[in-house]
């Protein structure tokens, strides 16, 4: 990890591409690694990748834009995913989503102006037994009540530094 800090973006992209170069159908896996490293797929990185793999930029964007998982914008410090899968929907997920929207004053797919929170409505997080579920970064909150949303978010707001 230490050495990657000092590596230029270009070298990092080269390293990832190199690791996958000879594997068939590698583009999606490469994009996963890129997003894992940068948090999203920045335009300059997509460009570098296009040269490195000798794949047209359009092809890369075609793939990125098809899949919801890939992001073209920088994520927030804390990424809130409100599950809108069936189990959560039945247990009142829309109200949870509304509560988060109200409290942060943003819509789905938006980030707060200070870059702290990003909000997304997602499909099933695979914890339906705990519905309704929200996830903040990697942490799952289950059986959330709309009155608890404020409290949950407050803990993160404190970490503002």
């Amino acid at each position: 990890m230490e050495s990657t800090k000092e590596m230029s973006v270009k070298d990092q992209v080269k390293a990832i591409a190199g690791q996958w170069r000879d594997r068939e159908g590698n583009l999606i896996m490469i994009l996963h690694q890129i997003q894992g490293k940068f948090g999203y797929v920045p335009r300059e990185v997509a460009l570098l990748l296009s040269r490195e793999l000798d794949v047209p930029l359009a092809t890369i964007y075609e793939v990125i834009t098809f899949y919801n998982y890939f992001k073209l914008e920088k994520p927030g410090k804390y990424n809130i995913a409100v599950c809108m899968g069936t189990a959560c929907y039945l247990k009142g997920a829309s109200q949870i989503l509304d509560a988060v929207k109200d409290l942060l004053n943003i819509d789905e797919g938006e980030t707060t102006p200070d870059g702290m929170f990003r909000l997304d409505a997602v499909r099933c997080l695979g914890c339906c037994g705990l519905a309704p579920v929200i996830m903040i970064n990697d942490r799952i909150y289950g059986k959330v009540k709309k009155e608890q949303v404020m409290e949950i978010l407050a803990a993160y707001k404190k970490n503002k530094e």
Binding site: L130, R139, Y141, K143
Partner: peptide, 12 residues
């Protein structure tokens, strides 16, 4: 495993 959770999943 937390088989029942009032708020946060305590498993972690």
């Amino acid at each position: 495993r937390d088989t029942d959770s009032g708020g946060a999943d305590r498993t972690r």
